[in-house]
């Protein structure tokens, strides 16, 4: 009895004081976050102001904003940004169109709908590497299925990845195949949230299909569509695996995205400081896009309320 009645004293009591208990509970998470995320971020930010190369024993010297200047005036970086923009815009548009059409289809009830829906969602659950390898094999002109099928009609081998336009298209198709189901899910969530009585009222008013869509359906899905655009833009902006596997940035460097270039600079050329500077520029762009995304999320919440 005496033991159980004993009150804690000293450091233990101070530590377990209810005032500090909350801080104590979150401390491990904060520590891990600091060690794994915040510290490396700060470290790499610091590195971006030096001329450090991970593969060199030379003592790094402070270079101020030199690396940022070098990156921003490098033609190759701007070329990669342009390539990224082309791939992002083409892929996101394709995902929106396909995702939207699929959502319209799945909003209706038809036999085996659940099974088909499950199958349609599968690409989204695959790893990027698998998707990259699949499509690389699909596009292979000698053995690939795309060339094989087209060969029946043209009697010639189909070489999709032989031109910059074809290679970009190949990447866009792979990315859209993988992520259109995601857009579909978002849009479908909007579609099923439309009260049925609104459609019944429109039917009574003999509203046209377009009018029904524009005045009833679209207002319910537009913020979700915006969410899909922003989310997919952010993700596609960082596209690496699929490009690296399908084209390796080729032909030449015409499909090399900024993420692939960043990887090369950091881990193949070992320009550690320069790649850190480029990474922070990319991070800045992603933060801007993320803020837009959060703004869209907030608007959606306000609308729902």
């Amino acid at each position: 009895m005496a033991n159980t009645a004993k009150t804690r004293s000293g450091f233990g009591a101070w530590l377990l004081d209810p005032k500090r208990r909350g801080a104590l509970l979150v401390a491990p998470a904060i520590t891990i976050l600091f060690v794994m995320n915040i510290f490396p971020l700060m470290w790499s930010f610091g590195l971006s102001f030096f001329n450090y190369k991970a593969s060199s024993l030379k003592v790094p010297t402070f270079k101020g904003f030199d690396n940022y200047g070098k990156v921003l005036t490098d033609e190759r970086v701007w070329e990669r940004f342009q390539t990224t923009a082309i791939i992002v815009s083409s892929s996101v548009i394709m995902q929106l169109i396909i995702g939207f059409l699929m959502a319209m289809m799945f909003a209706k009830v038809f036999p085996l709908r659940r099974i088909v829906l499950m199958l349609v969602l599968t690409p989204m659950m695959l790893s990027f590497v698998s998707v990259g390898v699949f499509f690389k094999l699909f596009y292979e002109p000698t053995f690939g299925i795309v060339s094989f099928v087209l060969n029946f009609f043209t009697e010639e081998r189909f070489v999709l990845l032989g031109s910059p336009e074809g290679a970009i298209l190949g990447i866009v198709i792979a990315d859209a195949w993988m992520w259109s189901p995601f857009v579909m899910l978002l849009v479908l969530a909007g579609l099923v949230s439309v009260p049925k009585y609104l459609y019944e009222a429109a039917e009574i008013d003999r509203a046209s299909k377009w009018r029904t869509f524009w005045t009833i359906t679209f207002p319910y899905i537009k913020s979700l569509l915006l969410l899909a655009v922003l989310f997919r833009t952010i993700e596609t902006f960082k596209l690496f695996d699929v490009v690296y596997i399908i084209t390796d940035g080729g032909p030449g460097s015409t499909t090399e995205t900024i993420a692939v270039y960043l990887y090369r600079t950091a881990f193949q050329f070992f320009k550690t400081s320069q790649s850190s500077a480029l990474a922070y520029i990319v991070l800045f762009i992603v933060i801007v896009l993320t803020n837009l995304y959060l703004y869209a999320v907030n608007r959606r919440e306000e609308e729902v309320e």
Binding site: E140, S147, L161, G252
Partner: peptide
């Protein structure tokens, strides 16, 4: 060479 030579792969 086989058509894959036109893709640089």
């Amino acid at each position: 060479m086989p058509p894959v030579s036109q893709t640089g792969q």
